[in-house]
Design a protein around this nucleic acid. Structure first.
Lengths: 125, 125
DNA sequence: ATAATACCTGGAGTTAACTTTAAGTCAAGC
DNA sequence: GCTTGACTTAAAGTTAACTCCAGGTATTAT
């Protein structure tokens, strides 16, 4: 697959795909003789994975560390698992915080509802 | 309260407090004659509210819009409620996405667990 | 009264994560 | 074989959200 096809498929600008590769967010993409990128299914898998993780807010720095470990082979399995455990915990904490805020927003919205009703009554009366 | 006390209380740098006020993220803070900030309980309430919302990822742009509406008084109640409704929906969507990723991370961690066990068996055998 | 410390403003600098640009190379259609 | 549009790189530019700095004023302790 060419870079523009991958760009289309995952809804990521081609520039971003090149950037991700340059900073080591995905392993080096397969190339033709000429140097043009030709994404394999595995390359695409990485793009999808990274897009997903970035969507949840994992930093580029963290993800490049993960990819760097992956590229070192099997002897880094435990470190990779640990990295994922740490990120999972962070993510869980963020979700919890956001759920608190969600509650607060809902409460505030209810208060607004009440105030608006009261205001309109006053205008009618 | 002085800015450094507020900074301490909410664990936000004094520079950030000034910045928040400058860009309209909180309404103008009470001042002494001399011009020095002297945060009232209400000013503190804004700081707390904004810190909370920023923590959940609401943008400064959105929050300044909210504060601007607030400063226009009661006739903006409906618009403020609508803004909060929109933000609540965004937040809810983000939480859902993050929960998906959490699931995926947990799955991946289990896979690593299995692979590590298998590897260690191989090394022993 | 004076020295040390805290506060003020406007503006420059920083960081993460892209995004655009310039200057060129490659590939598909005629 | 030539044009046109997609691809390449390195490097500069952008955006959001701070963060720091210089030069000056205010407050507090001695």
């Amino acid at each position: 697959m060419t870079i523009s096809e991958v760009s289309e498929k995952y809804d990521l600008p081609a520039d971003t795909l090149r950037y991700y590769e340059k900073v080591g967010l995905i392993p080096p993409v397969t190339r033709r003789e000429s140097g043009v990128r030709d994404y394999s299914p595995e390359d695409c898998g990485w793009v999808e994975f990274i897009k997903c993780m970035r969507g949840a807010g994992l930093s580029i720095e963290t993800l490049t560390r993960y990819v760097a470990l992956y590229r070192k082979g099997n002897r880094t399995l435990k470190q990779r698992k640990q990295l994922l455990l740490d990120e999972r915990d962070h993510l869980q904490a963020r979700i919890k915080e956001m759920q608190q805020v969600l509650k607060r927003l809902n409460y505030k919205i209810n208060m607004y509802e009440e105030r608006i009703v009261t205001c309109e009554k006053k205008l009618l009366g």
